[in-house]
Amino acid sequence: MTTTPRSPRLLVLSTVILAVVGGVALLGVPHGQQPPAPATASAAAAATDPSTAAVPPASQPTGPRPPSPASTTSASSTPAAPEPALPPHGEGPAGDRAIQRSLEESWPADLPADDERELLAAGRALLRADATGVGRAKWPEVFPASDQAVVPGFAAARFRIQAAIARRDGSPDKAVVHLVWAGMDRGGTFTDLRISDWHFTRESSKKGASTWTPQPRT
């Protein structure tokens, strides 16, 4: 398909019309004022790019404000977290008092003072005999002859009872002595915060006196 060439007269007429329209537009602008320049590509990009938006003054920060003196004071006056009830392993004799206090607070006393003293003395002696072999012959019902010949598992010089309490064991005629202790075994390893329980039963004699009898270990 071919295209008919445009007439020279038509091109001249189009040029004249464009010149007239341009002159009329210039006449509409007030004297001494330049016509507005067309928007450039950079201006259009600035209008659409959020990173080029107006930045607020430095005197009006948009981030979080620092705490007021009142809030700072309240934060600094907050009490510290409570210390752990038991001392860490390896604390030594300095931590024994804290262990004793923790036992007494978690298991309130429920025995007469005389019974408690008797039970504590017997429980301590039984634990020492069991761990070190010292005094096993005093309780043949607890440590039979076969047990008395066994080599002690812990050195008597490195044995220490850290804390002990005596409490009822479900009945007024039954009690348990709860002991926490430390010692060095035959392999040379020292360990503290060990736990042992010794159970007792109250027995009455023909004369009416009652004593606490230790029960064999099971």
Rank of each mutant, 00 (worst) to 15 (best):
T40W: 06
L179K: 04
L27R: 10
G135T: 00
E91H: 08
G183V: 00
E118P: 02
V177P: 00
G188C: 03
L103H: 02
P140R: 01
A157C: 11
W181M: 05
R160S: 07
A44N: 11
D147M: 05
K174H: 15
E203C: 03
R97H: 11
K138W: 09
R202M: 11
L126G: 05
P214N: 04
S76C: 11
D147G: 00
D96G: 03
R136D: 01
A129F: 04
R167T: 04
P61F: 04
S196F: 06
G188S: 03
P82E: 04
P66G: 01
V176Q: 02
G22M: 14
H31W: 10
P56H: 08
G188N: 01
Q100S: 02
I17N: 06
H178C: 11
S59N: 11
P38Y: 08
L111D: 04
P64H: 09
A163K: 04
M184A: 12
I165T: 00
A53D: 08
Q215I: 09
T62N: 05
L126K: 00
W181V: 03
A131F: 03
R168D: 05
T40P: 00
A131N: 04
S14K: 15
S204D: 09
V29M: 14
L126W: 00
T189H: 15
T40V: 08
P30I: 02
A80Q: 10
I165F: 09
L18F: 15
V55D: 09
G90P: 04
S210H: 13
S146V: 00
P38G: 10
K138H: 13
